[in-house]
Design a protein around this nucleic acid. Structure first.
Length: 820
DNA sequence: GTAGGGTTAG
């Protein structure tokens, strides 16, 4: 209760009253209170209930009116009222106004300071909260009290600040206050100082629910699942029951440690004790079930909620988004807007991810605009990264780069996002360049995500030595080998031709999930070791690891590369019947490839005709490729008709078709296809090959003449071609699409990128050492033949990895047995 | 008029 002081005689403070009444809605109680002010001005003895007045201000607008009123009535310097205003603004989330009001107060007491400090802590402006505490010590003659410390302890961002604060607690003698003690316990356990936290906890003379929760939640936020669960058990033995706070702390830990059993038990406990009605508990349940991939349970919890807040909506949207159901997630987002819940930054993060999954570039721009309009891009790096990733997944590399450049703060994930963006959009060299730029920023410390981004780029261009450097860094920096980093390394060694190293690494990584198994099976496949791939698959089953759709893509490809037709068909059946995996386009593509290469064109065509889904270019392309191998131009033209319907842009298919015609001497057809490709103005995917010499990757494009060693390379090729011809090499012009004279055709074949790279290898590496080449497209048939001769002439092992598999050339023979 | 321990993230 408050009595209006006699300060502002002369001006009626409430001459604005009708004006305020017209614009603001106060509760009836508040209206009465305001009337009281008015009356109090007339009759100075009336008591006013300002508490009511404060509580009736439900938005910043109303608060400002009340504030103006207090200023006008001369009450702004009153210590009770002004502190009330600081709190009011803080509760309404406007901490800058709270600070402004705070600064205006001339005689602050400890309540005022405590209000300001907790205002900062509540909105997570921790740095300012701590600064405010030190300001209190330095600029006022006031002593902090037991109310001061809990928010300040929460605000300590690191152990150095935390220890300093602990000293102040001890100095001023507040360590036995139950709230302060709980805050200390929580702070130490949050930073992983579990021993200290435990000691403080054990020494507490009084323990309430909050003390237990402080200790448990500290463990939880630190990811110490086992300790958290142990303590929970101890609490139970002590006869203390879990409350909503305990449950909301423990549920994320169940998800983190993949402990679905405890998760369900805690859920049952919550139902039994009526804790489900707590919105934090329900939200935590939704999140936990989402992480277990159990959308049904998540949805059920959401449906049963009586009160849903922003976090509930964000959680259920993210649940669907992260379980690859962007359509439902988008529907929920719309529903959320219908019930007038305002989205926040985290909603936008999910939204960006939803749009990325739908790979709809137009919507990408709307989401980007949505985020920019609200100023969120400048506010938090997380949303910036999400938007960059959204563009990356939509293939808009330039947009992703622009978002990245515009970020006020870039963290390691921003860099990782861009590296992945380049790598996944086929720009491996750019990804590598970007990684080198990142390394120059010493404040950015690479993490596991960085290795996962950069290793595939190194695999892609075959940079074995640089990939091994990363392996070295991983060993140095990480205590254990993360499954994903481990798998990337396996993939890198495998794709760089080091199958043995891939294998020994495989036995070092955790093999509970299908991820590393898929990688090692795929590695054996591209090396043409189909039998070994099947053996690994059986081992995987014996180990109790469940194969997924990726496993079968790798496995079918492995069978296809090795000509294991029966085994491939067996896999295709097992996949559907035993594991209930519906074949995707990739599986069909592999099957058509497998059957087609083996000459079972009838079966392959039959399979396509009976597909329950629409075949895409890769499926028809596989059939066309098989037709070229087996010289079946009738089926080839059927395949190409379908192919050009679904993809008329890929010049590779025109080359294939013209090869088919050329092989059976139908020059008319060859010319027709060539002019078709020309008329459609098709740009050929530039073929390139790379080779790593002395830690440096050199990339050669077909016809490249700008390389510093260009002259020597072409000289070497001329000498080689002459020797090859004397051994019986005849150039196969059917691999030349251009309509030119034969000697020009020979020149074109000789300047294919793989040959330039091989010649460069020959002149820059010691005699008889192995040459490793990478080609982005399939190796050309003529080059394949030529490389056999070159391996014989130079007595070198030449390993060529193309977009499909490995070719191991030695003594004039290729490991693929010309089955490719 | 002031305080601790809880849910969502790229």
């Amino acid at each position: 209760m408050f009595r209006v002081p006699q300060t502002c005689k002369g001006v009626h403070p409430l001459r604005f009253w009708p004006f305020i009444q017209a614009r603001c809605t106060f509760s009836p109680a508040a209206t009465t209170s305001l009337q009281f002010i008015s009356d109090g001005y007339e009759n100075e003895n009336k008591d006013l209930d300002f508490k009511l007045l404060f509580s009736s201000c439900t938005n910043v607008h109303l608060a400002k009116r009340l504030h103006a009123l207090l200023v006008l009535s001369g009450n702004a310097q009153d210590i009770f009222l002004s502190t009330g205003l600081v709190n009011l603004y803080a509760n309404l989330g406007d901490v800058s106004f709270a600070r402004h009001t705070f600064d205006q107060i001339q005689k602050k007491n400890i309540f005022t300071w405590n209000s300001m400090i907790s205002a900062y802590a509540r909105v997570h402006r921790y740095h300012e909260a701590v600064n405010c505490f030190y300001q209190l010590l330095l600029t006022s003659c006031l002593q902090p009290d037991s109310y001061t410390f809990p928010p300040v302890l929460k605000a300590c961002g690191n152990m150095v600040d935390g220890k300093k604060m602990h000293c102040w607690v001890l100095k001023l003698g507040f360590e036995w206050d139950v709230f302060v003690a709980a805050s200390l316990v929580h702070m130490y356990s949050r930073f992983g100082f579990l021993g200290v936290a435990r000691k403080l906890f054990n020494n507490m003379p009084v323990r309430d629910m909050g003390s237990w929760n402080a200790m448990i939640s500290g463990f939880c936020q630190n990811g110490n699942a086992a300790e958290a669960l142990d303590l929970l058990d101890e609490m139970r033995l002590d006869g203390v029951k879990m409350d909503p706070v305990t449950v909301a702390s423990i549920l994320p830990v169940c998800a983190l440690s993949d402990d679905i059993l405890v998760g369900i038990l805690v859920h049952l406990y919550s139902i039994k004790h009526g804790l489900e009605s707590d919105v934090f508990v329900s939200n935590a349940l939704i999140n936990m079930y989402a992480k277990f991939g159990n959308l049904g349970h998540a949805q059920r919890v959401f449906d049963q909620m009586e009160v849903r807040d922003l976090v509930s909506w964000n959680s259920i949207i993210a649940a669907y988004e992260q379980n690859e159901d962007p359509i439902t997630a988008l529907g929920l987002f719309k529903e959320m807007q219908l019930v007038r819940i305002q989205p926040d930054l985290l909603t936008a993060v999910s939204l960006a991810s939803i749009v990325a999954q739908l790979s709809d570039h137009r919507n990408s721009q709307s989401v980007h605009g949505f985020v920019v309009r609200r100023g969120w891009l400048m506010k938090d790096v997380i949303i910036g990264n999400a938007v960059a990733d959204m563009y990356a997944k939509a293939g808009s590399v330039d947009s992703a780069r622009r978002v990245f450049e515009g970020l006020p703060v870039k963290d390691v994930i921003s860099w990782n996002t861009l590296i992945t963006c380049y790598a996944q959009n086929g720009l491996a060299s750019e990804a590598i360049e970007f990684y080198h730029m990142m390394v120059e920023h010493i404040e950015i410390i690479p993490n596991q995500g960085t290795w996962v981004s950069i290793l595939p780029a190194y695999s892609h261009v075959g940079a074995l030595q640089q990939g091994m450097k990363i392996h070295g860094r991983v060993i140095k920096n990480c205590l254990y080998l993360d499954v994903f980093v481990g798998t990337c390394l396996i993939d890198m060694y495998g794709k760089c031709g080091k199958l043995d190293d891939a294998m020994s690494l495989f036995y070092q990584v955790p093999r509970k999930s299908s991820v590393p198994w898929n990688a090692i099976i795929s590695c054996h496949g591209i090396h043409g070791h189909g039998e070994k791939a099947l053996k690994l698959f059986n081992e995987m089953i014996d180990d109790g690891v469940k194969p997924d759709h990726v496993t079968f893509v790798s496995l079918l490809a492995a069978c296809s590369h090795s000509g294991l037709v029966d085994e491939g068909q067996w896999c295709f059946n097992v996949m559907q019947e035993k594991y209930g995996i519906k074949p995707s386009l990739k599986h069909y593509g592999s099957m058509v490839d497998l059957l087609g290469r083996a000459g079972r064109l009838d079966l392959a065509y039959n399979l396509i005709q009976n597909m329950p889904i629409q075949p895409d270019a890769s499926v028809w392309g596989a059939l066309l490729g098989a037709c070229r191998i087996h010289g079946n131009f009738e089926l080839g033209s059927i395949a190409s008709d379908h192919l050009f319907e679904v993809d008329s842009e890929n010049v590779g298919y025109y080359v294939l078709l013209s090869n088919i015609y050329a092989n059976v001497g139908k020059w008319e057809g060859v010319n027709r296809v060539r002019s078709l490709a020309r008329d459609r103005g098709l740009k050929k995917t530039p073929g390139w090959s790379s080779i790593e010499v002395n830690n440096k990757v050199d990339v050669f494009y077909t016809g490249n003449q700008t390389h510093p060693k260009s002259e020597e390379i072409y000289e070497e090729l001329e000498v080689l071609t002459a020797k090859m011809k004397s051994l019986g090499y005849v150039p196969d012009y059917s691999f030349v699409l251009q309509d030119v004279e034969d000697d020009e055709k020979e020149h074109i074949l000789t300047s294919h990128s793989e040959r330039l790279a091989i010649a460069f290898g020959i002149i820059t590496t010691p005699p008889k050492s192995t040459i490793r080449i990478f080609k982005n497209l399939r190796v050309c048939g003529d080059c394949h033949e030529a490389t056999k001769f070159i391996s014989r002439i130079t007595e070198r092992e030449i390993i060529v990895r193309d977009s499909n598999r490995f070719h191991h050339f030695k003594n004039g023979i290729c490991s693929c047995g010309d089955y490719w």
